[in-house]
Design a binder for these strands. Structure first.
Length: 459
RNA sequence: GUAGGCAUAGCUCAGUUGGUUAGAGCACCAGAUUGUGGUUCUGGGGGUCGUGGGUUCGAGCCCCAUUGCUUACCCCA
């Protein structure tokens, strides 16, 4: 067989030990906050039925789902013939692929909730830390395989949940060392209200996609895009004050209520935002800036209430988290009663890139073996075993380099692995019972008994 | 899907208007040092210059194609 150049698929990566230590630091930090707020972990399969995922993420999203081709002779088993193979790929797809890699954690969770609704106690608070896959073009901060850390609560329409998610973002990102980040808050009902006052409720997606781009293409760009999407100049004049809102969250809300006075749903959105802001004010944020941003739309078409997005202000990076409330997501899976849900997601890989760029990983994040026992021969190896076990019983991360290698080699190993201490066991040491204990950083070496070494390493 | 950039040692990269045998740093291996890493010194291995064509007396360098990576847009964590 011809040898092939080893490589991984585009947009995927290997994680070496040093990277895994840092990644786990992020996962552990986020998980611990989730648990603290009462969320319990679940996992779902990496693949879902294609039918579970299709149609939940909009037209663009459907294209970005990784499909898994059927096993076996999919051409014959799918009943593919001349006529349907030349038909459009949309019809062909379900015949040759019935599974797909999950695109996010929210839709599989909705599927999970409906399947397990009889065994779940509501409100159900779950978190999930697993990879998701998107067939996107990779670029800075964008991968085809990446981890999401999701927390959702299903079966509670209280806006306290929204407020707690703001607090979770604040606590987790603050713990990770971020100093300056903004949690953007919006409400889909406000967007609906805006569409309503210009009588374009059917075009809400076009409307939100366009105004979402405000900070990128400016008012002129948005105007141009809206005109292209069938809005009139009069429409744009009506909603312009809303798009160009400025000032504190309070002034924005006042002005919004004014503009949306004729829209019942719009005012409801304002009330909801107000309630969340009030809750958060009682909690008191530690680090985060909380900002009402009505240009925040997000592409997902299942949000119905609150919408979140988190951005760091310290480095240029897309959003590092997002979420929102979805009232009818479980509906398409045939939930008996409508189950409302709200949730957030942390983009772990982007957070990693941010922390790495800002040098925010603490040294403890990559701690491994504390002490390596080096020996010269089989005899030393046997002599070392009881000490090795005692060290481990005291929870000291310890390893023994198997006998047979030169001491030089063993020391190099300790050095490369950044092991701070080594213990040398030779004939002299075995005779006296005093072992050579070396501090690798300083190079200092002293003769200590096994007991003294144990004490030193557990101090 | 649209547009740009890049591709030379394991890694990061030099390589002059096209001109002998393609270099450096790091990493790796060995020795200086038969009981000691990191630091220092000496030596060594390692390359189809992404791939395929073309121009030329001659191509790492110029032209075309192709593949891969990457950045931005769309969209998104």
């Amino acid at each position: 067989m011809a040898s092939i150049k080893p490589s991984v698929p585009k947009g995927t990566r290997d994680f070496s030990p040093a990277e895994m230590a840092k990644r786990n630091y992020i996962f552990d930090t986020i998980k611990s906050v989730f648990r603290k707020y009462g969320y319990q972990q679940i996992e779902t399969p990496v693949m879902e039925k294609l039918s579970t995922l299709m149609g939940k993420y909009g037209e663009e999203g459907d294209k970005l789902i990784f499909k898994i081709i059927n096993n076996g002779d999919f051409l014959a088993d799918g009943g593919i013939n001349e006529s349907n193979i030349t038909a459009d790929s949309k019809r062909l797809l379900p015949l040759i692929a019935e599974k797909a890699l999950r695109y996010d954690l929210t839709v599989p969770f909705a599927r999970y909730v409906v399947m397990h609704q009889n065994e779940i106690t509501f409100p159900f608070k779950r978190f999930q830390v697993q990879p998701v896959w998107r067939a996107d073009r990779p670029q800075r901060g964008r991968y085809r395989e990446f981890y999401q850390c999701d927390a959702d609560v299903v079966g509670s329409d209280s806006l306290l949940n929204e407020a707690e998610f703001v607090m979770i973002y604040d606590e987790a990102l603050g713990k990770l060392g971020l100093k300056d980040f903004t949690i953007k808050l919006n409400n889909r009902k406000i967007l609906s209200g805006i569409a309503e006052i210009i009588d374009k409720s059917d075009n809400i997606i076009d409307l939100t996609v366009a105004i979402d781009k405000l900070d990128k293409i400016g008012l002129d760009g948005v105007t141009k895009e809206l005109l292209e999407r069938g809005f009139t100049q009069a429409d744009i004049e009506k909603i312009k004050p809303v798009i160009l809102l400025q000032g504190t969250n309070e002034t924005k809300l006042t002005s919004l209520r004014d503009t949306l006075a004729k829209s019942e749903i719009g005012l409801k959105g304002c009330d909801e935002i107000q309630t969340v802001l009030d809750y958060v004010a009682d909690f008191k944020l530690k680090t985060a800036h909380l900002e009402l941003d009505i240009t925040l739309a997000r592409g997902l078409n299942y949000y119905t209430g609150a919408i979140f997005e988190v951005k760091t202000n310290e480095v240029a990076m897309g959003s590092i988290g997002g979420g929102g409330r979805y009232d009818d997501l479980t509906g398409v899976f045939g939930a008996k009663e409508k189950l409302t849900g709200v949730g957030i997601s942390f983009g772990a890989d982007r957070i990693y890139d941010v922390l790495d760029e800002l040098n925010l990983f603490p040294a403890e994040a990559s701690q491994g073996t504390q002490v390596l026992i080096c020996c010269f021969d089989k005899e030393g190896e046997r002599y070392a075993l009881p000490l090795l076990q005692q060290l481990r019983e005291k929870n000291v991360y310890a390893e023994l380099y198997p006998a047979g290698a030169k001491i030089k080699k063993q020391m190099e190993y300790a050095n490369n692995k950044h092991i701070p201490y080594t213990i040398l066991i030779g004939s002299e040491e075995m005779q006296s019972g005093l072992l050579a204990f070396k501090d690798m950083a300083s190079g200092l070496q002293e003769k200590l008994s096994a007991q003294q070494i144990l004490q030193k390493l557990t101090a």
